[in-house]
Amino acid sequence: MPRIVDHEERRRELAAHAWALIRDDGLRGVTIRALAERSGWSSGAVRHYLPTREAIMTFAAQQIVAWTRDYIQSLPFTGDPVDDFRMALLGTLPLTDDTRAVLEIWLAFAGEAVRGDAAAQQALLYDHLDEFLLSALGQLADAGYLQPDDAEPAARELHALLDGIAVHVLLGKVEPVAAEAAVDRWLERTLSRQG
């Protein structure tokens, strides 16, 4: 009986090896040959799943979004809207070994995205995080934690804060405990029960 191969799982396995290459050698270190060596696969097997360097980079970038979404959804939410929002925000920062690894890869892609690299731009999570922040703050406004007109500007400010904190933690300029405290201060300053 022929063996059933999960092609998406094989592609995710290759993406994990591509992430390791990015962490070790930067984006320029990712080639089909390097990915074959890292994964132990033949170059032909790599090409079967991800036929070009661009395909490798695009899929690796897409996996950042998927991993982050899955990670945040796996957090032990309590049902308290502010506490759960806080937990999700902290899940976007490099405060654990796993989130640090993903955000190191994100930062490598960020440099290329500035130059207009399409695959790199997919990795930035900008649209996904932006949508999440707008939606969550809109819900918090509906629940009376801030004025409805304040939700959009608050989302922009918070997004910039998270991006900045992430970079500073990755660069070793801000300790994780200080990053967490900055998020807490923002939440305390911005969210309070209205009326």
Rank of each mutant, 00 (worst) to 15 (best):
A141M: 13
A141Y: 09
A141N: 10
D142R: 14
D142V: 12
D142S: 10
A143E: 14
G144H: 10
G144S: 06
Y145N: 07
Y145V: 08
L146Y: 02
L146I: 10
L146N: 07
Q147I: 09
D149T: 12
D150T: 08
D150R: 14
E152P: 00
E152A: 15
A154W: 07
A154P: 07
A154N: 10
A154Q: 09
A155Y: 05
A155E: 09
R156S: 11
E157K: 15
E157V: 15
E157M: 13
L158I: 08
H159G: 12
A160Q: 09
A160F: 02
A160R: 12
A160S: 12
L161V: 12
L161Q: 05
L162I: 15
L162D: 03
D163V: 09
G164A: 08
I165G: 04
I165P: 01
I165S: 06
I165L: 15
A166M: 03
V167W: 03
V167T: 11
V169T: 10
V169W: 01
V169L: 14
L170Q: 05
L170R: 01
L170K: 01
G172L: 03
G172Q: 07
G172F: 01
K173D: 07
K173C: 00
K173V: 00
K173W: 04
V174D: 04
E175M: 08
E175P: 01
E175R: 13
P176V: 00
V177R: 14
A178W: 01
A178H: 06
A178P: 01
A179R: 06
E180R: 15
A181K: 10
A182K: 02
A182H: 04
A182G: 00
A182T: 05
V183K: 10
V183S: 03
V183Y: 06
V183T: 03
D184A: 00
D184Q: 12
D184G: 00
R185A: 10
R185P: 00
W186D: 06
W186L: 11
W186E: 03
L187F: 04
L187S: 07
E188I: 11
E188G: 02
E188N: 02
R189H: 06
T190K: 12
T190E: 11
L191A: 13
L191E: 10
S192P: 00
S192H: 14
S192R: 15
S192C: 11
